[in-house]
Design a binder for these strands. Structure first.
Lengths: 174, 174, 174, 174
DNA sequence: CATGAATGAGCCTTCATTCAT
DNA sequence: TATGAATGAAGGCTCATTCAT
């Protein structure tokens, strides 16, 4: 992650990585057949880890808005704390190493969000808009928040979290 | 632009570029001292062209919301129409070639936006929030809109444009 | 040729070859995309050169036996003088680099031989055997002659040439 | 044998061989100090096995021509049945691994053949030619026969065997 | 202004081999 | 006797870059 973050995915040299890990370049090839496979492995592992570690817990008794806020915050925090990992994914996807690997999209999260939006719409709390658009709004606000935090223009303290989410909420509330 | 879009900025090879342009690689070096300089040149030119070609015209007599909408739409459209250029900028900025080049910040636009926001706040039409946050909201919505359009999940027709901006507006309106 | 002859086809290193030729390894790759292509090129060129330079001239007026002898001698001499080239071809064909490249078999020679054999059979001078077998006999004697010469167990002077061909002739004469 | 036959002697990898045999590469080094030694071992063993298994039995009472024919056939058959082993020997000898290893020449066979030729010459049945040349003739015809059989252009049935030997015989008979 | 020709630096990768266990 | 783990040495190949013409 660090290497990719610092030098870009094309800038990662096998030898450099090996040295960083404290093994010989050859040893890298004992475990990964090629640079491409290494990158793919990382990517795959990341895709799964992300799922697991992003603890989108559903707490049943909260009112909708709070539930949504909690989810949004969890996502945002995750994105901030795993900025380098996210960066890897982004870079990998636009690198020549990423060539349509099958990638059975794992929709666990997506479905959860969809359900939540449906509930909100049902209860008349948020606008009756297509799922893609509602998601886009949240993602957009999330990305910008992350960027503000990472660029040190903002800290994600209670107050700011409240603020950013309230803006998001205003955007989609009925 | 095409090369960067297709293969990533790290995948652009001088020889390939030369061939694409119909000249010899050596000739490239008549005009650019190095690959780095070439990339920088493109970046710089892009930064200026963007300014010029994005015709953020100020029409004095419109009410604030309409003025803002117009600006937002102009930006969004520009981003869609110049997706490859934007992509270049994004990639360049996180590439090893981009090393804090002085970058006399081109604030023409930023200032214009700042002024507009200030007006809106003054008139009590939009929330009294820091400039960075207001911008973030608009950028976030814009980026997501662009993404929806580019991924063919949406067309930016009158209706959708209205919708997306109305969401943005709800997010920041007082 | 020398390198292959000395070290085997797998033992030829691009760097070594480059140095031998007086250029840099990179330069080799300007002209040949890979070691494989280089080898293929040589092989192809060899296959054509062989044809041209092996001056199987048809002299019309000679009696059959003399004509055959002349041909046999020409072949044998050619094989001796181009031992390294022949060695290359042999090695290349059993190397991993040789993978069924189309190779439109150039039958110019084969046809000439076939014709000659047919004439001999027609005239009742040589045994009426399948073409493959007649060729085998001549090739076998040729190969062995070459080997004897190369291993310095024999010189291909007039006398020995006469001897070896006479043996061949005895084998196939009617 | 299979590996060498399929990929050439330069294509044999210790790891691959180990896997094929069902042991670990390291284990190979318990039994053979190096790849070179392994190859040499195989070669040596082959040279001896060849001797033993090629059952050049001397049957005293046959007339010379029949005895010679029998020997020729035995050789030829052996070469066909042990094509892969012969191939190994051929390849090994021109590989960089083969560096003039002492090679106590195994003359058992050679001597037997020499004796036989001497007898033939004595009896005035075959030409009075140097041993090398007589051997060459038989080897040449043998090699070509093997090649015809292996390339499926011929089967070594009674008839063909008779034919090929009769040609050989014609070549050397007095 | 253009380029053909050439190359050094450096990267990915392979593979025989070692060695502690 | 067997091997998992590791690696040094070396080879193939790429690519930005130079320079004489």
């Amino acid at each position: 992650m660090d290497l990719v973050y610092t030098q870009g995915i094309a800038g990662v040299k096998m030898a450099q990585l090996a040295k960083l890990v404290g093994i010989s370049p050859s040893t890298l090839y004992v475990y990964f057949k090629s640079k491409e496979e290494l990158l793919h492995s990382i990517y795959s592992e990341l895709m799964n880890k992300d799922l697991d570690s992003s603890p989108i817990t559903e707490e049943i008794d909260l009112p909708f808005k709070l539930k949504l806020k909690k989810m949004w915050l969890q996502w945002t925090n995750f994105a901030i704390n795993n900025a380098k990992e996210m960066n890897f994914i982004t870079q990998f996807k636009q690198s020549p190493y990423y060539e349509k690997l099958p990638e059975e999209v794992r929709d666990k999260n997506k479905q959860m969000v969809k359900d939540m939006f449906n509930d909100g719409i049902q209860e008349g709390l948020i606008k009756d808009l297509p799922f893609d658009i509602l998601t886009a709004v949240m993602l957009g606000m999330m990305q910008q928040t992350v960027q503000l935090v990472l660029s040190k223009k903002m800290t994600l303290n209670q107050e700011n979290a409240d603020l950013m989410f309230s803006i998001t909420w205003d955007a989609i509330k009925a």
